[in-house]
Amino acid sequence: MRNKSKNTALHEALRRYDLEMVELLIEADPHDLGHPNYDADTEGGESPLYLAARDGRLDIVNKILDICPSAAHSGPHGRTALHVAIVEVHLDVVEVLLVKKGELADKIDENGRTALHYAVSLERSHRIVQQLLSHDTSSVYKVDKDGLSALHIAALNSSIEIFRELIECCPDFGELQDINHRNVLHYAVMSKDLDKIKFALEQLELEEFINQPDEDGNTPFHLLAEQGSIKLMEPFISNVRVDTMARNKNGQTVDEIFLNTIPIVEGLSSFIKATQKR
């Protein structure tokens, strides 16, 4: 039964970090932790397993799953216990959930995001990403409601190490596009990370997508020009596969966009020097 706050007795014991009471309640009802009253069927609701994972209570997570492997696992916004364990960077809890409740790796929240979507967007998450990939690499291809795969997010926000690891698991990643038709290279250039940009350009899989326009007709090189950094642009300028004269839907070429981002004399001088090296 639930109280007026929509919590069961087990919820209340978990919120008070009362391990002895938690154990008593689980033992009193050992086979029914999957009951609907334990799940998050109300707005903002949290299952006992979700609460334990959120707080990094490995002892309670183990206790719940040992007694009831099918225990309810959901939380607010459609997130699972695995989602929240990753967000809170509880590595030990993540490991246990993948072993004992591995099906959570494929579960999506209300935005269509998997556990891997969350992992690649966090700092200090390389080990978690490796754990998820060793469990199942297919989640690399799953896209959320914005059309973003974990690889798009990694290209924009992750370390070069995580980005490289995902690319190795996703050989045909060039075909992944978000709802604005931007591919992984578009996101790599938006990261403003020179090493990541160079690495992305080196991938043969991206060869036919280097000049791919997004919904506004902007190629990755157009987006790079908007940042006004000739240093970041140099890998594109020196790459013979890049179409430096492509125009977006506003009729702009890369050099026109670049020259609009910085003082005209400085910009023209920098761009001429860079293009002469090609």
Rank of each mutant, 00 (worst) to 15 (best):
M1T: 15
R2M: 14
K4H: 09
K6A: 11
A9F: 08
A13H: 14
Y17T: 09
L19H: 10
E20P: 00
E20I: 11
V22A: 04
L25C: 08
E27G: 05
P30W: 03
D32S: 13
L33S: 10
G34A: 11
D39P: 00
G45S: 10
E46F: 01
P48D: 02
A52V: 01
A53V: 02
A53D: 02
R54C: 13
G56V: 03
L58Y: 04
I60R: 02
K63I: 00
I67A: 07
A71G: 07
A72F: 03
S74E: 12
G78C: 05
T80D: 01
A81C: 07
A81S: 15
A85Y: 09
I86C: 05
E88F: 11
E88V: 13
L91W: 02
D92C: 06
D92M: 10
E95W: 02
L97R: 05
K100G: 04
I108D: 02
E110N: 15
E110R: 12
G112A: 06
T114R: 04
V120K: 05
S121M: 14
L122Y: 10
E123Q: 13
Q130L: 12
Q131F: 10
L132V: 03
L133W: 04
D136Y: 01
S138T: 15
Y141G: 12
D146H: 05
D146T: 01
L151C: 07
L151D: 05
A155G: 14
A155Q: 07
L156E: 06
L156A: 07
N157A: 07
I160K: 11
I162C: 07
F163V: 01
I167W: 03
E168T: 11
P171Y: 06
F173R: 03
L176Y: 00
D178V: 02
I179G: 00
H181Y: 08
H181A: 02
R182Y: 00
V184G: 01
Y187P: 01
A188P: 06
V189H: 04
S191M: 05
K196D: 08
A200D: 08
L201W: 01
L201R: 04
Q203E: 13
F209G: 00
Q212V: 06
D214K: 05
P220R: 03
L223I: 04
A225R: 01
E226Y: 06
M233E: 09
F236Y: 08
S238G: 03
N239I: 10
V240E: 14
V240Q: 11
V242W: 00
T244A: 09
T244N: 01
M245S: 14
K249G: 03
N250R: 13
V254A: 14
V254H: 13
T261G: 02
I264M: 09
V265P: 00
K273M: 09
Q276E: 14
R278D: 06
